[in-house]
């Protein structure tokens, strides 16, 4: 059935972006924009693929991916937090670093195959007509991804640590006055973000494409960064945004498989345009939601 297939595909193809977007929410909530998310995804994808290829264990692969993503994010954190360099420039540099390093280290993995992350049917729930297939017939990382948005929301708004994170992002001096080191909070936030981006990359190659090629993410990390801004730094809306992106990507292919003609140029464009449009509508009138320290990155003019 068309709607069922499209929704299933939506979740399937939105998940890598979802992880990266939630990671970026954490980083930006601490006051650091990480344009290196694309690089973290790529290096995570490679680390996940390589570790799985060598150990035949996707679990080790996912752990390696998180570690690699966090390690690359640490480079960005050091440059912008300790060395106080421009966040945007550093982020781009980190992306290209990740792209290049992954390309070189990944050469030998292009012709390898891995034991993929298998789909797990959730008993009982997967038998529900319609919803069963859409929601409960995926790999474990996809299930975890569904929970990630709400969990992160609870963390941000219902826990003390979430409060400290948000305070650091809004007004670092306040967090400092309450006895928390903004630098430490930011280091942790940026690395957590990198780890999630890495897991997103790993999900892409281990559950979805089942293969590694250079630049396998093709810009999904940048999409994630844009999503976060248009989602008003809200993890629930970021989840929505990632699924809209996945859905737009999936629906055109599903339509074509049913014999409907679509221009390949429109095809390239739709996921981006549709995601932007929906998020723009969803976050109307909330432009000022940007964490204070993020506004500072863009200077007074943009604030």
């Amino acid at each position: 059935m068309f709607v069922e297939d499209v929704l299933t595909a939506t979740i399937r193809s939105g998940t890598p972006v979802l992880y990266a977007a939630q990671g970026e929410v954490i980083a930006e909530r601490s006051g650091v924009i990480n344009l290196g998310t694309e690089g973290c995804m790529l290096i995570g994808a490679l680390a996940g693929f390589a570790a799985t290829a060598n150990t035949q264990s996707p679990i080790i692969g996912v752990v390696a991916a998180a570690g690699a993503g966090a390690a690359l994010a640490l480079v960005h954190a050091f440059v912008v937090i300790t060395r106080r360099a421009n966040q945007l420039a550093s982020g781009l540099a980190v992306t290209f670093l990740g792209l290049g390093v992954a390309a070189i280290l990944g050469r030998h993995y292009v012709d390898q195959s891995v034991h993929p992350l298998n789909q797990v049917r959730i008993p009982l729930l997967s038998d529900i007509p319609f919803l069963g297939n859409v929601l409960f017939h995926h790999d474990v990382l996809t299930y975890a991804g569904m929970a990630l948005g709400p969990l992160l929301w609870l963390f941000l708004y219902r826990t003390r640590w979430g409060l400290i994170l948000r305070a650091t992002g809004e007004q670092a001096s306040v967090a400092f006055a309450y006895g928390h080191s903004p630098a430490r909070v930011r280091y942790l936030a940026v690395m957590a973000g990198g780890a999630l981006a890495g897991i997103g990359g790993a999900q892409l190659v281990l559950a979805y494409t089942l293969s590694w090629v250079e630049n396998v993410t093709v810009g999904r990390g940048f999409v994630a960064v844009a999503l976060v801004i248009f989602a008003g730094w809200d993890p629930l809306k970021a989840t929505l945004g990632a699924w809209v992106f996945g859905g737009a990507l999936a629906v055109q292919l599903q339509l074509q498989a049913r014999g409907v003609s679509i221009s390949p140029f429109l095809l390239q464009m739709t996921p981006y345009v549709l995601t932007l449009a929906i998020l723009a509508v969803a976050s109307r009138g909330r432009a000022q939601r940007a964490p204070g320290e993020i506004r500072a990155v863009f200077g007074k003019a943009a604030a």
């Binding site: 892409l204 494409t209 292919l253 599903q254 074509q256 498989a257």
Partner: peptide, 23 residues
């Protein structure tokens, strides 16, 4: 049945294109 991806090598899109045909 033909599906055009608009890209020479985007494995994510390839996977989805293949899945939509297999569906």
């Amino acid at each position: 049945s033909v599906v055009f991806t608009g890209n020479w090598c985007d494995p994510g899109k390839q996977a989805e294109a293949a899945n939509s045909l297999l569906d």
